[in-house]
Design a protein around this nucleic acid. Structure first.
Lengths: 187, 187
DNA sequence: GTCTATAGCTCGATAGAC
DNA sequence: GTCTATCGAGCTATAGAC
């Protein structure tokens, strides 16, 4: 169970750095120090290994997000903690970047882990916001679903801005304005 | 000058649909009904043709954005018009999607058109917001640069959400919350 | 379970005829 | 300016020895 893990780990890294289409089995094998035979023994091919790697990355991300959202405090504080999570804006989102990959979007099996990850995230953030509305922290007329989408879009779009200009500050600017917008929703 | 334009047009479409790394010269030739020889006569190779196609797409986008921002009305109305521009969220942004491509980010020549496009957009939107502050429509303490980044990130991130879930509504939810946030900045 | 060898294909680019 | 032929490399996958 050691070589298999190394393959998944290496595949996850490469999917993050290069996406699915631009990552070859040979690259994964080289980085994980596994041979051709090992890879095709543990997985049926590139797609199955990539799916396992995506689920691995999504799980890691989910744990980190849960830690940020689960910290005590008000809804605004918890969402702000999510926006301020430790990130490398220039590296991009290990899950979100896959959404641009033509091969991933074309194949429902490959897209499933990504879609599930975003669905979970959107619901999770919407729940925190709904708590804020219930407790009287946020306005009663707050559109919880729309605001959750805005928060996640800010992060995903912040990655795009940072990568386009090769400047981490672009991400932080977007996050700062999103936090200000959240404060504007408080009673 | 006809075959050359067809090559640029086809390349722009394919870059939008598939990105740079996953688009091959053969695909571009097929779609533009141009032969191998024609392509290498007009362009030094894939990279040069792609650069021309990117500038073509960026120009198209700039014209459309200018139309939305240039419509009369308050700053909030003009930015809202940008957020409500006619888009196909599932198709993604023809410029922003290139930011995820490993080959594009690795090469400054390829990245330049993308970076310039985003720099122009961020400045343009910041200018509109600054006018709103000056006219007394928006609060004096508005962080114009951060808000501009938030607006663009909302659009780019909205594309990611929509593609991840294959649902246009995800984009519209994010845009709706962004417009609400803008209203919250008015005096 | 892991290895090497190789299949069959497509990649991006070049050559040279016309 | 456009064509076809071809190069060397890398792609994903399979075969079969160990």
């Amino acid at each position: 169970m050691k070589t298999k893990d190394a393959l998944v780990e290496a595949a996850a890294e490469l999917l993050w750095e290069r996406g699915y289409a631009a990552t070859s089995p040979a690259m994964i094998q080289k980085r994980s120090h596994a041979g051709q035979g090992s890879m095709y023994h543990h997985f049926s091919g590139k797609a199955e290994l990539a799916t396992a790697a995506m689920r691995h990355s999504a799980q890691q991300l989910q744990t980190a997000v849960e830690a940020a959202l689960g910290s005590g405090g008000s809804a605004v504080e918890r969402i702000s903690a999510y926006l301020d999570m430790e990130r490398s804006p220039l590296a991009g989102c290990r899950v979100g970047r896959l959404v641009q990959d033509p091969d991933v979007v074309a194949d429902d099996e490959l897209r499933a882990p990504v879609a599930e990850s975003f669905e979970w995230l959107e619901r999770r953030i919407a729940d925190v916001l709904a708590e804020g509305v219930r407790s009287g922290e946020l306005r009663q007329d707050t559109d919880v679903a729309a605001t959750a989408a805005l928060v996640i879009a800010t992060v995903q779009g912040g990655y795009v801005l940072a990568r386009a200009q090769q400047d981490e500050e672009a991400f932080r600017r977007a996050a700062k304005a999103a936090k200000a917008a959240l404060v504007g929703l408080t009673v």
